[in-house]
Simulated scan of single mutants.
Amino acid sequence: MVSSIVTQYTDLLRTSDYDLWVRLRELLRGQGLDPQRTVVVELLQEGPDHEDGRVVSGDGRVYQFTLHYDQADEHGASRARLGRWADITDSWRDGSLGPRTADAFAWMSSASSASSASSASSASSAGGRVDRCLPTFCLRRTYQATVSTIRAETTNAHTVVAVS
């Protein structure tokens, strides 16, 4: 299963209006990445003035970076800058984020497959529309939505939610 951090942070990167995510989208574009095709593996506060992050680009490259900004300033995130940007595609398996990075690749692969399948099925679907497809399940907004089982489990200090 995919880490909820990967899915939540990626959704924030793609949709959030908060200064941090807006600025991160700008910085990623500046590095040649499309935020709508980029998956966030991690963004972790490492001090009062920076966060360390890892992303997987739409073309499968893995990047590690440091995002510097004044976290005490209400609008400091809107002025964030990249302090370190490294392509770690050849070494991402090393270290503690290796398994989560592998999850991100799996998520990208299944999201691509689910997106193709949902596009075809949504055209014939009546009474609802597909808003976005996540790798483990499709979120469908209908007037009467039903979820049979929601199960949450904690694995390696990450909460994973499965819907069946």
Score class of each variant (00 low, 15 high):
Ser110Asp: 06
Gln36Arg: 00
Leu20Trp: 05
Val147Arg: 12
Pro99Ala: 03
Asp73Thr: 03
Ser91Phe: 09
Gly53Thr: 06
Ser115Gly: 15
Asp11His: 13
Arg79Lys: 12
Ala102His: 03
Ala123Val: 09
Arg14Lys: 14
Ser16Val: 09
Leu97Ser: 11
Leu97Glu: 09
Cys133Asn: 13
Leu139Thr: 08
Ser124Gln: 08
Val41Asn: 05
Val163Leu: 15
Thr154Tyr: 08
Arg37Asn: 12
Glu74Tyr: 07
Thr159Gln: 06
His50Ile: 02
Leu139Val: 12
Gln144Trp: 08
Gln45Ser: 07
Arg29Lys: 10
Ser91Pro: 04
Phe137Glu: 13
Asp90Gln: 07
Leu13Pro: 03
Leu97Phe: 12
Ser110Met: 06
Tyr69Trp: 11
Met1Gly: 14
Asp131Val: 08
Ile5Trp: 00
Val40Pro: 07
Arg25Asp: 09
Gly53Cys: 05
Ser115Asp: 14
Glu51Ala: 12
Ser3Phe: 01
Ile88Thr: 15
Gly60Asp: 10
Ala157Thr: 06
Arg81Cys: 00
Asp90Val: 00
Gln31Tyr: 02
Ser109Lys: 02
Ser116Asp: 13
Arg132Ile: 00
Gly98Thr: 06
Thr10Ser: 13
Trp107Ala: 14
Gln31Leu: 03
Arg25Met: 10
Asp11Met: 08
Ser78Lys: 10
Trp92Val: 11
Thr146Ala: 15
Ile88Cys: 13
Ala86Met: 14
Asp52Trp: 06
Arg23Gln: 14
Pro48Tyr: 01
Val163Phe: 15
Ser109Met: 02
Ala152Glu: 14
Ser78Tyr: 05
Trp92Leu: 12
Thr155Cys: 11
Val62Phe: 02
Ile5Ala: 05
Ala162Gln: 14
Pro48Phe: 02
Gly47Trp: 04
Ala126Arg: 12
Thr155His: 14
Arg54Trp: 03
Leu12Thr: 06
Ala104Glu: 08
Val41His: 04
Val39Ile: 14
Thr142Cys: 09
Arg141Asn: 02
Gly60His: 09
Gly47Pro: 04
Val163Met: 14
Ala157Pro: 00
Gln144Leu: 11
Thr136Pro: 01
Leu12Ala: 15
Ser115Leu: 13
Arg140Trp: 15
Val62Ile: 03
His75Phe: 02
Val41Thr: 09
Gln71Ser: 07
Arg14Phe: 03
Asp59Ala: 02
Asp87Lys: 02
Asn156Trp: 00
Arg37Asp: 13
Gly47Asn: 09
His158Met: 05
Val62Cys: 01
Val39Asn: 01
Tyr63Met: 06
Glu42Met: 12
Leu24Glu: 06
Gln45Gly: 04
Asp90Trp: 00
Asp17Glu: 15
